[in-house]
Design a protein around this nucleic acid. Structure first.
Lengths: 247, 247
DNA sequence: ACATTGTTGTGTATTTTATACACATTCGAA
DNA sequence: TTCGAATGTGTATAAAATACACAACAATGT
């Protein structure tokens, strides 16, 4: 109750607040950051883009791409700005995942962070900015990171696993034209699980969302596979919201 | 880039930061609140617990149960505290949903809020605190609310619809012992969709998670139905993480 | 030219799950 | 006793998931 009465102190109980600005000025303020978990896919392995931490206490440890949120900046905008600043990339799929607020998560004091996920086609976007040893790391190889970033990464990885099964996110990690094998490798890498090749193909074929571009792979040391594009227009049109209890 | 160099100003580029506290002090700070979307179920209707807004600009409009986050308070703790302060309730299922950060969402200036959802059994918890005209509203009847709370409510409602199909949340809204009809009414109310009675029962029967308590309803003006309990232990043990691409 | 190797592309049988649908039973109320 | 209204149950059909095998193809090496 303490806090409610504290807020009330600026006006009598039961009376309406006429000046919201004065009210907001009484609120405690916290430093707020956004951390971007940038996933990429290369050599059939799921990767994440990291930098070397600035902080001496985290000497040698890797860190997500984060920055503080600016005055009057929306969180989505902050995430996009950080992505742009760090990688030069624009117009990338980005999604808020959740906030992390443990009081001791930052050695410099209380800092709350909001995690965003982004999926990047590594081939399509050469990294132009390499500050802080920015580069890709295999997700599976990481164990310790700066701050609570390993926890955030783990959470986002699970989020991605669930998300990719219900939404066509994966195509953001592939070239525009891809083979069935590439697609399956992507799913297997993210889900960390082997899938039956024939059933996988059947599943995607039955969805009717892949466009056969009548081309085949080259530079493969074996029989080349057909290439496909994902039909985003059709997907957007037919987006279903199904009902099916399952737990 | 502006912001990175701004942060850098406290130390030379390439050098490690030795004093993280000083670093954090340079971060902009924002007022942060938690808004709780408390769902309940009564008379076969999904309801949400609201208070009358304090603010004159929102004269007459209803508002979610929110409060600012205290110094060094975790968001989860803040949400639990607010729930307790407003309703007297403790030990309630609470889950973070997402943050809302539009710069103009609060008339008093920039305030970021984190939405939490909670599901409450209305019968089991009489409201002891009725400040600010706290009471239950039919979700379907709401159109305009204070702040961006209608947007938050809508988002949380959709979140709930998805969530209830994959997790046994619904049982938090029912009495410990409930009939199949009550359970189905709950799902129909939340999903806003009619379900086939026989298939619904078959589905839950096949899950094997309902315990027949060998009792029947009373005080119903028709043939009473059998009562069941949800087997939380068995659910926790067998929690599966299935793989199935579907979009 | 040919055999070898590895991957592509396809089909079918089986099981499981979802959907659609109807009727007798039970209790309360009149 | 009868009526009304909801309970409890089963079956047939369609759709989806799963398990599994073999021929066709292109590249490579001989």
């Amino acid at each position: 109750m303490k806090n409610i009465s504290q807020r009330m102190s600026s006006h009598k109980a039961g009376e309406l607040v006429k000046d919201p600005t004065t009210l907001v000025e009484t609120y405690p303020k916290v430093p707020l950051t956004v951390d971007c978990v940038l996933f990429g896919f290369e050599e059939n392995v799921l990767k994440v883009l990291l930098i070397r931490s600035d902080l001496q206490v985290f000497d040698g440890l890797w860190s997500l791409l984060g920055d503080n949120v600016l005055d009057n900046e929306e969180l989505d905008d902050a995430a996009n700005r950080i992505l742009k600043e760090r990688t030069g990339m624009d117009d990338i799929y980005l999604e808020q995942v959740r906030s992390f607020s443990h009081p001791a998560r930052h050695p410099g004091g209380r800092v709350i962070t909001v995690a965003y996920c982004s999926l990047i086609n590594i081939q399509h976007h050469q990294l132009k900015i390499l500050d802080h040893e920015l580069h890709w790391h295999e997700v599976q190889s990481l164990t310790k990171m700066a701050f609570d970033h390993f926890e955030i990464l783990t959470y986002c990885n699970q989020w991605l696993q669930k998300r990719i099964q219900e939404h066509p996110l994966g195509f953001n990690l592939l070239p525009v034209k891809f083979s069935m094998r590439e697609l399956q490798n992507l799913y297997e890498a993210i889900l960390n699980h082997q899938l039956d090749r024939r059933n996988f193909r059947k599943k995607f074929a039955s969805m009717g969302l892949l466009i056969d571009v009548n081309e085949i792979e080259d530079n493969v040391p074996h029989r080349p596979g057909k290439l496909y594009k994902f039909n985003f227009e059709k997907y957007e049109k037919n987006k279903r919201n199904w009902i099916g209890i399952d737990f």
